[in-house]
Amino acid sequence: MEWFSKQRQSHARINAPALVQVAAIAIISTRCLDLFMLFNMLGVRGVSDFVHRSVQTWSLTLVFLASLLLLCIEFRCAFVIMKGRNWGRWIYTVSQIIAAGYLGAASLGFGYPELFSIAGETPREIFTSLIMQKLPDILVVLLLFMPEESRRFFRLQ
């Protein structure tokens, strides 16, 4: 049988550099840790109340669903990055820009809802908190773009 003897051609590369592996694992682990800490802090009842509050109006529902979609996109990017696909690192970077932009805007009162915002009295405090909260993501983006080994890995696809 001919279809049993054919080898499948895969465009994915097996040997990702250590820095790319660290970046992909960091994406997955930070997102899982974020979810774990959220569930631990809120508990089952708190998570239920959070979801209930998030689906009370159309705008809250859209923001909630968009945040879940963004989480799924980030997980997908992590696995695609391990395969050496260049578009994965770019989509991850764009997703971080969108998340930071929306979080900053909502925290400063320009976005809706306040449910997804950072507490702070002055814009400087909010900006500092935002940078501290996004620091792991900034470091992951730097790992994907700055080292020559990482750039070469994605260029040779």
Rank of each mutant, 00 (worst) to 15 (best):
residue 45 R to N: 14
residue 149 E to S: 15
residue 89 R to C: 04
residue 130 L to I: 03
residue 74 E to C: 08
residue 52 H to W: 13
residue 27 I to L: 14
residue 21 Q to V: 01
residue 78 A to D: 07
residue 54 S to T: 02
residue 117 S to R: 15
residue 78 A to C: 05
residue 70 L to G: 11
residue 111 G to P: 10
residue 149 E to K: 00
residue 91 I to T: 08
residue 88 G to D: 03
residue 130 L to R: 11
residue 41 M to D: 09
residue 49 D to M: 07
residue 118 I to S: 01
residue 69 L to C: 15
residue 128 T to A: 13
residue 49 D to L: 04
residue 44 V to F: 10
residue 51 V to T: 09
residue 53 R to W: 06
residue 69 L to N: 11
residue 74 E to Y: 05
residue 47 V to L: 11
residue 69 L to P: 11
residue 80 V to N: 04
residue 20 V to A: 06
residue 78 A to N: 03
residue 77 C to K: 00
residue 79 F to Q: 08
residue 114 E to D: 12
residue 72 C to F: 11
residue 81 I to F: 07
residue 58 W to G: 09
residue 44 V to D: 09
residue 64 F to N: 06
residue 5 S to P: 00
residue 89 R to M: 05
residue 15 N to F: 14
residue 147 P to T: 08
residue 142 L to V: 10
residue 49 D to S: 12
residue 109 G to Y: 08
residue 114 E to W: 13
residue 49 D to N: 14
residue 88 G to K: 07
residue 131 I to N: 08
residue 32 C to E: 01
residue 61 T to W: 03
residue 122 T to G: 00
residue 146 M to F: 15
residue 41 M to C: 05
residue 47 V to D: 02
residue 67 S to P: 01
residue 55 V to T: 15
residue 44 V to R: 05
residue 53 R to A: 14
residue 83 K to Q: 13
residue 77 C to S: 12
residue 58 W to L: 12
residue 143 L to K: 04
residue 21 Q to R: 13
residue 18 A to I: 14
residue 135 L to E: 06
residue 131 I to W: 09
residue 60 L to E: 11
residue 115 L to I: 13
residue 106 A to Y: 02
residue 75 F to D: 02
residue 33 L to V: 11
residue 126 I to M: 02
residue 99 A to G: 07
residue 81 I to W: 05
residue 148 E to P: 07
residue 138 I to F: 10
residue 79 F to H: 03
residue 16 A to S: 02
residue 105 A to H: 13
residue 29 S to T: 10
residue 68 L to N: 14
residue 35 L to F: 14
residue 25 I to Q: 01
residue 27 I to Q: 00
residue 60 L to V: 01
residue 41 M to R: 14
residue 118 I to K: 02
residue 135 L to Y: 04
residue 112 Y to R: 02
residue 58 W to Q: 04
residue 131 I to D: 15
residue 155 R to E: 15
residue 153 F to T: 06
residue 118 I to T: 04
residue 136 P to L: 02
residue 94 V to M: 13
residue 46 G to C: 14
residue 27 I to V: 12
residue 146 M to G: 07
residue 126 I to G: 01
residue 51 V to N: 02
residue 154 F to E: 05
residue 95 S to N: 06
residue 81 I to T: 03
residue 46 G to W: 10
residue 89 R to N: 05
residue 25 I to D: 00
residue 134 K to M: 15
